[in-house]
Design a protein around this nucleic acid. Sequence first.
DNA 1: CGAAGTATTGAGACGTCTCAAAATTAGTGG
DNA 2: CCACTAATTTTGAGACGTCTCAATACTTCG
Lengths: 223, 223
Amino acid sequence: MFVNINATPAARPRFLGEHDDQSRASVLVTEFKYIRGAEIFGEAEPAEYVYQVVEGAVRSYKLLSDGRRQIGAFHLVGDIFGLENGAMHRFTAEAIVDTSVRLAKRINLEHAARADALVSRELLSMTTSNLQHAENHMLLLGRKTSLERVAAFLLEMDGRVSAAGVMALPMSRRDIADYLGLTLETVSRALSSLHEKGFLEFLGQTQRQIVLRNRSELAKLDL
Amino acid sequence: MFVNINATPAARPRFLGEHDDQSRASVLVTEFKYIRGAEIFGEAEPAEYVYQVVEGAVRSYKLLSDGRRQIGAFHLVGDIFGLENGAMHRFTAEAIVDTSVRLAKRINLEHAARADALVSRELLSMTTSNLQHAENHMLLLGRKTSLERVAAFLLEMDGRVSAAGVMALPMSRRDIADYLGLTLETVSRALSSLHEKGFLEFLGQTQRQIVLRNRSELAKLDL
DNA sequence: CGAAGTATTGAGACGTCTCAAAATTAGTGG
DNA sequence: CCACTAATTTTGAGACGTCTCAATACTTCG
């Protein structure tokens, strides 16, 4: 489970509290791997670590007692997650595919923030962008139709996982559904409908590689 | 519009950056009044001030182009709102009833945070509790039934506006609906249903004063 | 190649929305 | 304070969008 890949420092994204200024004391960072489906941390568990996706993808979700699930966010390469102000995690986090993460002890990060106003501001800035995402997602969940939700999802993911115009989605229809507050069947129907209307193509023999056509028209569906 | 009520310092809630230690430099705070329905700030406007409700109630919302509205939060007496990390407001804020607010210049607050790690931590803590509220609200909007949503709303408000067991709601059924991602008719039907089932009583000749009965049973509806 | 997992599609059920009317409450001016 | 009007809330009936259940097709992986 434990790995020590020290990728070329230039290539890897900056972690919280890391600075180009190498003289500054940095928080200790190690690396772990999780296989597809593995739980990284559970809701209401003590928040001991903060994580960053090096490779793979992660879903963060809450459950109701009867199993209904709401995914609050997907974490892709470079994303930091598991950052809590309180002592406990407020989501369960699972690897969607085989995933490697870097992790830092929360305590160390807090010390770094206490010592360094810049780290402290980074922390606030990260929390704020999480908040901003949640605010936009409330609008989607409360007021958008299934087609609008799926269009918004595609546009969000297009900006995050697309390379050379091809979007390779790591998550299943069920994951998408639980992110958008729909059922997997409704997501599938919406994708078929967008395909019929020429907004997207499925690539090769998979349903998870998608090319968006006419992005500006698609954006009109994301009111 | 402008008022200078200096309530007894002991009675009024602490504002961001204010400390009991009076020797510490505090951010300048003034007071304003808004009549029922007045806009306090608009979405995408520059965020010049941060606000705290002294009396009244405020709704923060986003709109879609065709008028669909999602209220992200209600701000009641003591609540701080309009706090942004970026330069712009991400919601429109309106007075639900005649409302007076205290306000501080964002710039000053930022200076205070730079100078004082305690203020900085307060800022992070406030942002985190906003995030936590949004996270819980995503679960409600994405996965709960209308009855569960209304039950959750009543429990939330019970903890915030109840005095002597009586909850005096400042907001209309439409506001509640736009908060819960429902229509006002569905909210009304859910309240009637909860009334029939004995979970609540309407007080006097108004539909906005409510007494909750059997809170623990009601909590079971809020899965 | 077979088996398990995932995605699509169809048909009908169900919950919430829409439209409409009536009842109730709040607001306004005399 | 009353009378009138406007706004809000409740309730009903039918429409509509999404969900549920089921069957089939497709993809992945051993």
